[in-house]
């Protein structure tokens, strides 16, 4: 199993792991993400299927989980890697290794405000450049709030 390989070769990198309904998940720190991604690439996990994030505003420490899904095209194994990241902190970008990460990371930045270090063009993808706030954060209102800043972008969700 690839999880054991990662634990052997990068001791201490895997902070937590769990299996649920056949999905394997490991949690790694942002500082180890590049090393883990390199190792996964060598182990055959060359297909980065998806990059997304989950917002946990009540959680102590790291507010966001950046979630990566990898697929091994030879063995058809899947692995989910979660990287906890605090508000305002950044995650290393994977664009140099996986070109597909480009737009996914832009989307995560757009929707959650997570910064990706080393991304060549970290701009909003789905909303417009001066959109106030980040739409998929839990404190962003469902009705879109003051998206056009008619009230001068004073609502709390406009910051960040």
């Amino acid at each position: 199993m690839v999880t054991e390989h990662i634990e052997e070769q990068l001791p201490g990198a895997v902070q937590d792991k769990h299996d649920f309904r056949g999905d394997h998940t490991i949690v790694v720190g942002a500082e180890n993400l590049l090393a883990v991604a390199d190792l996964l690439f060598k182990e055959g996990f060359q297909f980065l299927v998806d990059v997304t994030a989950v917002d946990w505003p009540e959680r102590e420490g790291a507010r966001f989980d950046v979630v990566y899904h990898w697929l091994n095209l030879t063995s058809q194994e899947r692995l989910r890697v979660k990287v906890p990241v605090a508000e305002g902190a950044s995650v290393p970008s994977l664009v140099s290794r996986f070109k597909t990460a480009d737009w996914y990371e832009r989307e995560v930045y757009d929707m959650f405000g997570v910064i990706f270090d080393g991304h060549p063009n970290l701009q909003r993808l789905l909303t417009w450049p001066d959109f106030p706030g980040h739409a998929l954060r839990k404190d962003f209102p469902l009705d879109g709030g003051d998206a056009f800043c008619m009230d001068g972008c004073t609502a709390p969700y406009n910051r960040g």
Binding site: V49, D50, T52, V54, D55, V67, H69, K99, T100, D102, W103, Y104, E107
Partner: peptide, 26 residues
């Protein structure tokens, strides 16, 4: 792909759609 995070509530806590044509278009 659908990535669903459930906290046991009536609604999903997070639901992510992995669209096939986004990486292709990129």
């Amino acid at each position: 792909g659908f990535y669903i995070v459930s906290d046991g509530g009536k609604n999903p806590y997070r639901i992510r759609v992995r669209p096939p044509c986004l990486p292709i278009f990129s």
